[in-house]
Computed example of a mutant assay.
Amino acid sequence: MTTAEPLVEVVGLAKKYRTRTVVRDVTLRLMPGEIVGLVGANGGGKTTTLRILAGLLRPDLGSGAVLGDDIRASATARRARIGYMPQRLSLYPELTVAENLRFRADAHGLPDARGQVEAAALRWGLAPVLTTRFERLSGGWGRRVQFAATLLHAPPLLLLDEPTAGLDVVTRTDIWRWLVELATRGHGIVIATHDLAEAERCPTILHYRDGVVEGPITPKVLIDKSGARTLEAAVAALATAAPQ
């Protein structure tokens, strides 16, 4: 039996834009099957962290590896094994859902692109909108399609930035059910979310406050530290507390 290798193992990551340090001291070890939530106020560094892990930004400080590749080296190879879903929808507005998914399948070099699209439509419930141009979708359908496109090549590592933002309760429930299923199958998931009720579902979180990162810790530890009853109340209380 072989021991699983970490999908992410980084220490002390930091990123600065000009004179402003956006995030500092990000330390994370993510194993296959784990879900980690990134929580905190807007501008705290959650998206920057995801972009560093995705290989879209290079850290100024820190070390480690993502999918076995040095975090500070070129990320061309590892990007093909990462499913990165940005907060802003990024599919082609003038193409239909099916055309977008087929384009994504071709870009990843997947065999039988047509079959891949049909399988994705069945798996993620996209049949009602397959022939609809992406720009004509509602926000909820658009985010569901973006989620499906992100998962099309079955990446071992998922980096999701607000995947349930603006969604109705049914679709949010569907996506979280899918995330748990994906983790059960061995995918590693890092998810940034403003929905702190949802973030309480994550076994482990990183808490961002003024660019400083606390964790990994459990939601319960952060709740107990603040004296609050929920993660949402804990993050709000800590955001307004005087620095120690």
Rank of each mutant, 00 (worst) to 15 (best):
G12P: 00
E9P: 03
R229E: 12
F134Y: 15
G44A: 13
L38W: 07
P59F: 14
A75Q: 11
T19F: 11
V97G: 02
V22N: 03
V8C: 08
Q87P: 10
I191P: 04
E200L: 04
I223M: 04
T173S: 15
A119G: 10
V36W: 12
A239V: 10
H153D: 07
H108C: 06
A105S: 09
A80I: 06
L28W: 05
P128W: 00
N42I: 03
K46I: 15
P163G: 00
L28G: 05
H108M: 08
L196A: 02
D60I: 01
T193D: 05
L57I: 02
G166Y: 03
A107V: 12
P111H: 12
D69M: 09
A237F: 10
T184D: 14
F103M: 14
T218M: 03
P59N: 05
L158F: 15
G40P: 01
S226N: 00
S226F: 06
V170S: 11
A183C: 09
L167H: 01
E198G: 03
G40R: 01
L30G: 00
G40H: 03
L206Q: 02
L167D: 07
R143F: 05
R209L: 13
R136L: 15
V11P: 06
D60L: 01
A154K: 12
L91G: 07
L182I: 02
T240P: 08
E181N: 07
Y208F: 15
G55V: 09
L196V: 06
E232N: 11
G115L: 02
V221M: 11
T96C: 02
A192R: 00
M85T: 05
A239F: 07
R229H: 15
A41I: 10
A242E: 14
E162N: 11
G40C: 02
G109W: 05
G44F: 00
L122T: 13
G142N: 00
Y208S: 02
E200S: 14
P163A: 01
R201M: 07
K16M: 13
S74P: 06
A75K: 10
R72D: 02
A241E: 15
P156E: 09
L222S: 01
L56P: 03
Y17K: 05
L167R: 00
V10Q: 03
T131N: 15
R172K: 14
R24P: 07
H207K: 08
G68Q: 07
K46Y: 12
E135T: 08
D168T: 05
P163R: 01
L160V: 10
R102W: 14
G227C: 11
D224S: 11
L91N: 06
L206C: 00
R88L: 09
R201Y: 10
G109V: 07
T21R: 14
A113H: 14
D106L: 15
G37F: 05
E162D: 08
M31C: 06
P155G: 11
L179C: 04
P216F: 01
V235C: 01
L160W: 01
A154C: 08
L122F: 11
L61M: 13
I175T: 03
G115I: 02
I189V: 15
R143S: 09
A121I: 05
A197H: 13
A14E: 07
G44E: 00
D60E: 08
R177L: 09
E34I: 06
R104F: 13
R177W: 10
G33Q: 04
T204V: 14
A120F: 14
L151A: 09
A234R: 00
L30Y: 07
R72W: 08
A239I: 07
R114S: 14
P216T: 04
F134C: 00
V23W: 00
Y208N: 02
